[in-house]
Design a protein around this nucleic acid. Structure first.
Length: 230
DNA sequence: GCGACAG
DNA sequence: ATCTTGTCGC
């Protein structure tokens, strides 16, 4: 486990944070399909907080994409770098997530984030931001809808409904289990939406949420407990 | 101006 | 995200 320091140039206000998003948005790469599902490695990242003690813990868990076996994992802890503001989640999560990724002993391959990528008010959610800072292919898989309207996908696993910003499809509500509430998938960086959904299905053989985020969630909670928990 | 709003 | 018991089901 590594300890993180908040970067000296990290935004201190919502105004500054939005300016950073507007400046970095142009660097998102959208014309690559990304790695094929079921090959190479797939990494889940997640973060847990103890607002009382101002502690944050992040985890990165690398899975073999074919077997979904854990190949490597790393954690990082630090101070909370930003309050939770819808649309600015990246500024709260990224410093610690980046440190956890840096601590991995192997390349992460595709990174699966807990949240949104392009399906964001300024087209630059957590998954896109992480992708631009690392150059890694990323996707976002969120548990709840954000600001975009969508229809209800059909009942069977694999069914989708577009997340629409006007007439533009910025993500998809994707059913990963029959008749269970869908997850919300969007492109982060260097992937396309079809592939992002295919990856999400490949990572959900048994549960609504991807194995990557389930593993990362369990690990960062444990790291938080060991770092600050009572 | 009033809600809604990833984690 | 987090506070929280038992309970129904694969």
């Amino acid at each position: 486990m590594t300890t993180v320091r908040i970067p000296a140039d990290w935004p201190g206000t919502e105004e500054q944070a939005r300016a950073v998003q507007d400046a970095l948005r142009a660097r998102v790469v959208l014309d690559e399909p990304g790695p094929p599902p079921g090959t190479g490695r797939v990494t889940g990242v997640d973060v847990a907080y103890d607002d009382e003690r101002d502690v944050v813990a992040a985890a990165a868990v690398v899975l073999d994409a074919a077997s979904l076996d854990v190949v490597a994992e790393a954690t990082a802890v630090g101070r909370i770098s930003f309050p939770y503001v819808p649309g600015l989640l990246a500024f709260r999560e990224l410093p610690t997530v980046l440190a956890a990724l840096d601590a991995l002993p192997c390349p992460p391959g595709l990174v699966v984030c807990d949240g949104y990528g392009r399906a964001h008010p300024r087209r630059f959610g957590l998954a896109s931001h992480l992708g631009v800072l690392t150059s890694l292919p990323t996707i976002g898989v969120a548990k709840n809808p954000f600001t975009f309207a969508h229809d209800t996908p059909d009942t069977p696993r694999g069914s989708t409904a577009p997340l629409l910003d006007g007439r533009e499809e910025v993500g998809r509500a994707l059913r990963t289990r029959d008749a269970v509430k869908p997850v919300f998938v969007s492109v982060g960086h260097r992937t396309d939406l079809d592939n992002a959904c295919a990856h999400t299905l490949a990572l959900t053989p048994a549960h609504r949420l991807p194995e990557t985020t389930r593993r990362a969630d369990a690990l960062c909670r444990r790291a938080l407990r060991e770092a600050a928990g009572a």
